[in-house]
Write a protein that binds this DNA or RNA. Structure first.
Lengths: 252, 252
DNA sequence: CGAACCGGTTGATCAAGGTCAATACCGTCA
DNA sequence: TGACGGTATTGACCTTGATCAACCGGTTCG
């Protein structure tokens, strides 16, 4: 059970380690290339950096008024929508360098919950300031258009997965996607620790947790992976990818 | 079979009925409120209006270079992604006042096909001009942020549908969604003509065409709707909505 | 006109994955 | 350290929707 606490964004929490975007190792993941020093400085003044979020805490909840986007600096989040009768659909797992909260712009109200799957640090981007700054910095405006567009493309990939793929294909797509995103951040592409439960994976993939568990066991029996609880090794990555050929490999 | 023709956007096709955005009945659907006359005029100069697209034609295809967004003026489109092995996932059905092509911004390449389900007219919005104009008109920039955000929220709703709902719930959600969007455009909320085939509905909903057909027949047998080929009457709308309670009704 | 074709409906059967249940495992904390 | 709660695995069985197939009714076209 996740404790029902929404992390308070207090002024106090902003002053630990005020670190500049220009010095951030995630710069190339969450900012456009080629900003001038002056533009970087402007960004630094509007972004509240290194806000800690503890495992299990909500960064925001569906229904919360929208004020800011959040860039994940370290850690791992899930976002999910919950239907009236309690069915939960995980809509994504986000890791460092990724932006969450985009769904809230349209209605000025968050449309989903964002929950930390481990202790995290995020940067807060007050949207009104992003709006005005992105008028002054064309590259920034384009960057946000692109980030949102990328999210739409990712969602289309998830729809393809949920609409067309069988359990094994879904799991394979999931593992490969994680692997690629971790590799892009300098982590191993073949060995990693899952931050989410089988149930959360299942919810994301439109499967029940038992099916996730069974399918992982089958992959292990087939020599594709090894599983030890949340520790995964992709033993035969090409074979896993082969499970997907014809399914339009990536969903970002 | 859809003919394999991509509609050519020629200079010639732009001069039929050059009608201004300011005079367009869809203004409140596709533009922000409260633009000045001057701002409207600027918009009018960059938008190529009333481009005809015949039924079955592709407005764009996955892989096409991205140049423009398109606002649908009249008619009905589907967008779909196709996997290597030919499995097609319909990602949405779009009607007048809606914007398509947003997925192409991120990679500057269209990520899906857009196909006219009937004879249509679209307005072309060259993206580079949108980009610069939206820097001059803050309301326009915000508008595009919101439109993209709304698409993300819609996609989350589809994920919930595909991940959690059973066939009857999916169909009910689909019918209610269509009904609401048609009503918002001044058409009847209870009687309408489907522009898409059972197969396309099935692809969108993650079902096979036989299941769509059976489920519609069952709804008719239960007195919820009447079906005659593509003509649908929602006889007992409250009951249809009840099928959905607990599923977070709308997906936009 | 008739043949072919497309879209739709309906039935019989099947299999993937869901459900229910028992058990095992692991980390946490008293 | 040992007990507990949340998580994971595995088995037996069942349900939903997929698959395969026959058939119908329009429309198109030779």
């Amino acid at each position: 059970m996740q404790p029902n606490v929404t992390v308070p964004i207090t002024d106090v929490s902003l002053h630990h380690f005020k670190a500049a975007c220009s010095a951030c190792s995630l710069r190339e993941l969450c900012l456009p290339l080629g900003l001038s020093q002056d533009e970087m400085n402007k960004l630094d003044t509007i972004i509240n950096q290194r806000i800690p979020v503890k495992r299990g805490e909500y960064l925001f909840r569906a229904g919360d008024p929208f004020r800011s986007l959040y860039a994940i600096r370290t850690g791992f989040f899930k976002t999910c929508v919950v239907s009236e009768d309690g069915r939960e659909q995980v809509t994504g797992f986000q890791m460092s360098g990724e932006l969450i909260g985009l769904d809230a712009i349209s209605t000025e109200t968050h449309a989903c919950d964002a929950i930390a799957l481990e202790d995290c640090e995020v940067c807060e981007l007050p949207f009104s300031k992003i709006e005005s700054l992105s008028r002054d910095i064309p590259a920034l405006q384009l960057h946000f258009y692109k980030v949102m567009s990328r999210e739409i493309v990712r969602d289309q990939g998830v729809m393809l997965l949920l609409g067309n793929m069988r359990a094994e294909e879904r799991l394979a797509a999931f593992l490969i996607n994680l692997s690629q995103r971790l590799a892009a951040r300098g982590f191993s592409a073949v060995g990693f620790h899952l931050r989410m439960t089988r149930e959360e994976i299942g919810s994301y993939l439109g499967l029940k947790l038992e099916t996730v568990s069974r399918t992982l066991s089958k992959f292990q029996a087939d020599g594709l992976i090894t599983v030890q609880n949340k520790q995964i090794e992709l033993v035969d990555l090409p074979a896993i990818k082969r499970l997907l050929t014809g399914c339009q490999g990536a969903h970002s």
